[in-house]
Amino acid sequence: MLVIINGVETELADTVTVANLIKQLELTGRIAVELNKQIVPRSEFESRLINKGDMIEIVHAIGGGQSTFNW
């Protein structure tokens, strides 16, 4: 099933939870997740399912002060 992760179309084998996706992507640091523009609280990572066509944003903190570039 096709989903969009951080703007990139990605094929996932099956419907997965957010927690499973994070594990599959081998993400270990401090992150925050948005599913279809809505925050997924960390407490819901285990229960929230990702479905076909979903848009997922996974972010982390980086150095920044004022703008220097666009995302």
């Binding site: 996974i58 150095g63 920044g64």
Partner: peptide
């Protein structure tokens, strides 16, 4: 101290140190 929020690089060097 200010910081920015950006997309995590998927599939790249996950052991990179974190600003925090």
């Amino acid at each position: 101290v200010t910081l920015a929020v950006r997309r995590t690089n998927i599939g790249q060097n996950q052991n990179e140190p974190n600003l925090l």
